[in-house]
């Protein structure tokens, strides 16, 4: 690219090379009937999924219908507070808005009694010891801080049980 010819007033001063161009999208998230029931149960320290009457799969958080069979999932199922790590990610990269100390582990956890994993944090264990099949349990916030949000669970931690058999979670990886 040929040299620019600058007017005198622009010579010998620090040039602008970049500018902030943030983008922001403000939404209202409406949970819907099924997820509202799930979140209200979370505020009572309970985990509740819904079972499909055709394929018998238990969805959590429930969306009110089975995506495979297209039928309402009306039967509610109380789920355990323990589950199996199906897959996980060790987060090493700083990003905007991050509140966690690096590195930390974000994992998909298949709660006992359910057929689809939820995403949550794994703590109280060195990040390099987290593995597929690890058995974990929910650590809840104090009762007076419970609310209709998955943040009512602080994180999951190993519960001391031996690793789950591959057959028990192979359909979820």
């Amino acid at each position: 690219m040929p040299e620019l010819i600058l007017p005198a007033r622009l010579q010998g001063i620090e040039q602008v090379r970049s500018f902030r161009a943030p983008a922001r999208l403000d939404y209202q998230f409406t949970a819907g009937l099924a997820t509202t029931r799930f979140l209200r149960a979370v505020a009572e320290k309970r985990l509740v999924g819904q079972r499909c009457p055709k394929c018998q799969k238990v969805y959590v958080p429930p969306r009110g219908a089975c995506p495979t069979d297209g039928v309402p999932t009306e039967e509610e199922v109380e789920l355990a507070h323990s589950g199996t790590v199906t897959t996980f990610c060790v987060v090493n990269v700083q990003f905007y808005g991050q509140v966690m100390e690096l590195p930390y582990v974000s994992a998909l956890i298949l709660l006992d009694g359910s057929d689809i994993p939820i995403m949550h944090l794994i703590q109280e264990v060195p990040y390099d010891q987290v593995h597929m099949g690890m058995r974990v349990e929910a650590v809840w916030v104090p009762d007076d801080e419970l609310g209709p949000t998955l943040e009512s669970i602080k994180y999951f931690r190993p519960n001391g049980e031996p690793d789950a058999d591959w057959e028990t979670y192979k359909d979820n990886v």
């Binding site: 690219m1 620019l4 600058l6 007033r9 622009l10 001063i13 620090e14 040039q15 602008v16 090379r17 970049s18 500018f19 902030r20 161009a21 943030p22 983008a23 922001r24 999208l25 403000d26 939404y27 209202q28 998230f29 409406t30 949970a31 819907g32 009937l33 997820t35 509202t36 979140l39 209200r40 905007y96 808005g97 209709p148």
Partner: peptide
């Protein structure tokens, strides 16, 4: 009777200018 919460997505972009727009912004 359903729960509703605000949900905001933010991207903290910074764009580079090149020399010509850079001169305009410097001015």
């Amino acid at each position: 009777d359903v729960l509703v919460a605000p949900s905001t997505i933010e991207y903290p972009f910074r764009r580079t200018t090149g020399p010509v727009i850079g001169a305009f912004l410097t001015a």
